[in-house]
Design a protein around this nucleic acid. Sequence first.
DNA 1: ACCTACTGTCGAAGCGCTTCACCAATCCTG
DNA 2: CAGGATTGGTGAAGCGCTTCGACAGTAGGT
Lengths: 335, 335
Amino acid sequence: MVTLAQVAQHAGVSPSTVSYVISGKRSISQDTRLRVERSIAELGYHPHAGARALASNRSHVIALVVPLRTDMFVPVVMEIAIAVTTTARRYAHDVLLLTSEEGPSAIKRITNSGLADAMILMDVELEDERIPLLRQTGTAAALIGLPADPAGLTCVDLDFEATGRLAADHLADLGHREVALIGPAESVYRRHTGFAERTLTGFRQQAGVRGLRFLHRPCGDGHEAASGTLSRIFEERPGITGLVVQNESALPHLLGQLRQSGRAVPEDVSVVAICPDDVALHSAPRLTSVSVPAKEMGRRAVELVMALAAGRPAEELTLLTPALTIRESSGPGPR
Amino acid sequence: MVTLAQVAQHAGVSPSTVSYVISGKRSISQDTRLRVERSIAELGYHPHAGARALASNRSHVIALVVPLRTDMFVPVVMEIAIAVTTTARRYAHDVLLLTSEEGPSAIKRITNSGLADAMILMDVELEDERIPLLRQTGTAAALIGLPADPAGLTCVDLDFEATGRLAADHLADLGHREVALIGPAESVYRRHTGFAERTLTGFRQQAGVRGLRFLHRPCGDGHEAASGTLSRIFEERPGITGLVVQNESALPHLLGQLRQSGRAVPEDVSVVAICPDDVALHSAPRLTSVSVPAKEMGRRAVELVMALAAGRPAEELTLLTPALTIRESSGPGPR
DNA sequence: ACCTACTGTCGAAGCGCTTCACCAATCCTG
DNA sequence: CAGGATTGGTGAAGCGCTTCGACAGTAGGT
């Protein structure tokens, strides 16, 4: 293993100089910097992470807590996780993967052991038991998702209320009068995971403003749940011509079921999905959708948390503005 | 921050004693052990990861390299990742998440910096450029997937050849005579990611043995690709009554298309999927499937890598035996 | 009874790095 | 051109832990 001392010797300078070249915390003459850098490359030197963490009290690691429960759409979780690690690398940081299985104690363990400088939490619940701990330990942390009381925390999320409003507006604009919101599984609402409820709130509000008659139904995963939900909706409200779907895994089943039951999209029913773009693009017809900006959320979370870890202040609430892309699944309403 | 020295003082012993209590590397009297353990709990002590890594040369971290390219089914990747982290925790280890973006240099960086004691690589290609590095540095590593030459490496994978044979056998047993294998996107075959080719090999072999006439077609993601592939298959071979599908994301579209084109499953066409169980269960009809044991793979990889890191020898090749579960999508063939 | 062996504990060295205090040389600035 | 800044470099302390060797004290074998 190559050590800093060896690099120093090879470059003919003192260890501290090498350290300063690497960290950039002091000005170093062009000349010696080059010499040191050449030695580093030549010897293939990489600083020992543990030693560095011990001496500097910073590990250059961000902990990412991913949900175990899979009522968040798994590909979105993965996309965020990947965005987090690639962004972290741009800050010369690595990512430690934790699951919510370990619970709140994981937070204590990580902060106390100095394993990570900062944390990013996904799958935040409205009354998340980890939040008091975060507040009290003053850990540099960003939440992806919104708890009930985000004061003093740093949160990133899509503005789901605006998303709901946007979807309602789009259907209203097209002339639809009766619409339905198909959400995630009921368990998600019961666990108060925020995003589902916020979409509903925004949707309900704007539906009111625009005079839309509307229905809201949760929908489980799988084909059966999807087709059951769908037929019950049309049974109850045969006049429905607009559907907003916030449930990625039900989407293909829902579309298949519509096709099979003889309702053409968009001629008979318009569909607006809340999903990642690639899901919208891989459906038939291609879906008008409000995209879930997973990459952006991951990236922002890292940026915020890096600011916090560096002692800089960070925006408390980052609500990403939703964007609706009109594709082939939505068209003019009745008449 | 609580240090080992503080624990020692609190318990009235020397620091080294505390260390030995924690590591169990020397025998400690019942009496002092209890006293120390109580102090640890009382002070909420967690060893400083960096200091420990520096002194002991072991970081208690496993690096997990996940694919960036998403031609592996994302939920499977995620499930493996989660299985890896939960299993790692049982060995008191944490998991560092890397993406294949950084390429082979990541391996050097991690091993040289002592950030991780071992690595688990997913998305291994037949001629993976990281493998020489692994061999040469002697890194404790496990591969999930099979390279062209696994000699001297530690690999875990589903036995895809057996999987192909199993699927062929099942259809043959049911009396089908003409069948098709619908695989992942063509790009996957071109990149030689092993698993697709191995399934094909096993399927072809057993189809030969059982006298099945068969066709093989890759299939892209999305509805269009799926329905296109399907109609071309039936155009070319109208007599086909059995389908093996190794493409999770095409599955719902394929099934929808079959339904729509008036082919009943399993009355007209039998479908055998190679996919995780929950995908099979969430389809309609529930699919006869060979399950991809993601959890098991993650778990095994950790166990193997922990053995290697501890200097114990490890199985070079772990091929998990596939299991076919008969559900509702496969039935008797023609006649 | 003596020597050996083992058990339980301690002290201290040292892992590889960062950073503080210090120094020498150069640079302005009035 | 004196005096204070500024720049570029060094030496050494010390971060919190593990681990080696030492050392009492007790046990076991003969």
